[in-house]
């Protein structure tokens, strides 16, 4: 564990808590892509199956359980409890266009051709593109609530911090995982346009609106 990874994990945690708080306080999931949230639930459910096969640390297990459970709660809130506020008309990204190619790639490019390892690889690849339905939705509506942009900033920062963690681990531990690093870089690049808008607009007190 190094400082980059710890702050990265805390940023990820903060993102999830921010999203749940936003929904709970406003009793609404307006502006949030349910499709991205379904993908995140799928990401956690397929990645953390090693909870049953290996014990790393209490921290590791607690975080894994937290991510799985909160992602399921988020999907439940969006599709059941606050369904009336879900903006389905703007959430039109086709999930099969992500899940099918990513599934194929996980079969072809992985560390070890075993069920758990393929599911882990699938999860890493899927996470890198899981935010696309959310970004697509924002580009259709042309704006995002400020709390939603804070959520996205924390969520995007987490993988960027993990890149620093991988640089650190490469130099000091000789650790290098090509699959995680490439997918993590792709994931971070997808957020760059949003990061730019966040820094130039939201941090200056303006609402995040996209250029027409």
């Amino acid at each position: 564990m190094n400082i980059f990874r710890l702050i990265g994990d805390m940023s990820h945690l903060l993102a999830i808590v921010l999203l749940l708080l936003k929904m709970w306080k406003t009793r609404s999931c307006a502006g949030i892509s349910g499709k991205s949230q379904i993908l995140f639930a799928l990401v956690f459910a397929t990645r953390y199956l090693d909870l049953f096969t290996a014990f790393i640390s209490a921290y590791n297990s607690t975080m894994k359980l937290f991510f799985i459970s909160t992602s399921l709660v988020t999907v439940y809130l969006m599709y059941f409890k606050f369904r009336a506020t879900y903006d389905a008309n703007h959430d039109t990204f086709r999930l099969e266009f992500l899940v099918v190619p990513v599934g194929g790639l996980a079969f072809l490019v992985n560390h070890n051709f075993s069920p758990l390892e393929i599911l882990w690889t699938f999860s890493i690849y899927l996470e890198s593109v899981a935010i696309l339905p959310q970004l697509f939705m924002m580009s259709k509506t042309g704006e995002a609530e400020t709390i939603t942009s804070h959520y996205l900033f924390a969520l995007g920062s987490y993988r960027a911090l993990y890149i620093l963690n991988w640089v650190f681990r490469y130099y000091f531990e000789g650790f290098f995982d090509l699959i995680a690093v490439v997918a993590g870089c792709v994931q971070t690049i997808l957020y760059c346009d949003f990061f730019y808008l966040y820094i130039t607009k939201v941090l200056k007190g303006k609402k995040l609106s996209l250029p027409a």
Binding site: T53, A54, I56, M63, F67, N112, S114, E117, N165
Partner: peptide
């Protein structure tokens, strides 16, 4: 990195 050892990153 065998899965039996688990993944230490989240």
């Amino acid at each position: 990195r065998p899965i039996a050892e688990g993944h230490d990153e989240l």
